[in-house]
Design a protein around this nucleic acid. Structure first.
Lengths: 155, 155
DNA sequence: TTTAAAATATAGCAATGGCTATATTATTTA
DNA sequence: TAAATAATATAGCCATTGCTATATTTTAAA
């Protein structure tokens, strides 16, 4: 009945759907990085605003419980994104700083872009939060190009 | 030391960061729906292309194992998104069809938009996969408006 | 109508990301 | 310095999403 049935177990099918598989795999991979990116980005924000990033602050900002943050920070420390100093909060390593910088730039770019498109600021803020992690370098370039020409056309 | 410390345990803080919390909560909520949306969208695609959507096909397209699909379909059936017919694949309920339609439209809109922005088709396809789940109705409207005016300016 | 093959289901494991309740460890302050 | 408070860590639970290995059920074929 199905055109797929006959070859469902053969190897030829693989090539046919390779791109699709790659797409979903890439997306799943991005989804696993989302939380890490949220954390380093938030930690950078807290440090720049308040000079420190404590677990209670992170937990409050993210809307999760403190032990959840504690567990995640352990993971980030294992990944060498942060260092923890007792009762003094967490600090970004070079690696973490680089990632945070990248995320902040990408985040603000996406948010600016949405606002430029006419999305209300509050909604743009929420959408950007989810979208940012899935924006490739090529799309970043395209957005930058758009913002430049858009800005030029309005001046 | 920190400006947060003094009031960290008081209720006043809540209002101050309410929006931020709401943003992350919204994003976490969206993230939980991503998989459901991926499935119904893919099921709709498979049915329209091949007249049926079997677990093996879904698994191959998503790049996961068949038991993973089996488990997820159980959840989708419990959510009344699909009905399962043994050895005949899965079919969308009205509810599932509505969601799939919405997702497909949103997905293709985002992909079209990225291409219109100048993102290479292959990259646009991957990025759209991740982005689509985080695009609000307001952003959809803004994109539609852009595509219309963009199309008009080139005609 | 058995048998072979295909499709689906189940069992059982692991990692992740939540939670509450309860230590433990640092820092202040009395 | 001892006690109180603040910050962090740990224990132990749950749900989700993946996996492999192995049933079980359906369909098709001999």
């Amino acid at each position: 009945m199905s055109t797929l049935k006959k070859t469902a177990t053969t190897a030829e099918k693989v090539n046919e759907t390779d791109l699709q598989i790659h797409g979903f795999r890439q997306t799943r991979h991005n989804r696993r990085l989302e939380l890490v990116e949220d954390y380093v980005e938030l930690i950078a924000d807290l440090i720049s605003k308040h000079g420190e990033a404590r677990q209670v602050d992170i937990a409050r900002e993210l809307g999760v419980a403190q032990p959840t943050v504690s567990k995640m920070l352990k993971r980030l420390a294992a990944d060498e994104m942060i260092v923890q100093r007792p009762c003094r909060g967490v600090f970004l390593t070079d690696k973490g700083t680089k990632l945070a910088k990248h995320c902040r730039e990408r985040h603000s770019l996406v948010e600016t872009f949405l606002v430029a498109l006419g999305v209300p600021a509050e909604v743009a803020s929420i959408d950007a939060e989810g979208i940012e992690h899935h924006v490739s370098e090529q799309t970043i370039s395209a957005i930058k190009k758009f913002l430049n020409s858009d800005g030029a056309s309005k001046n």
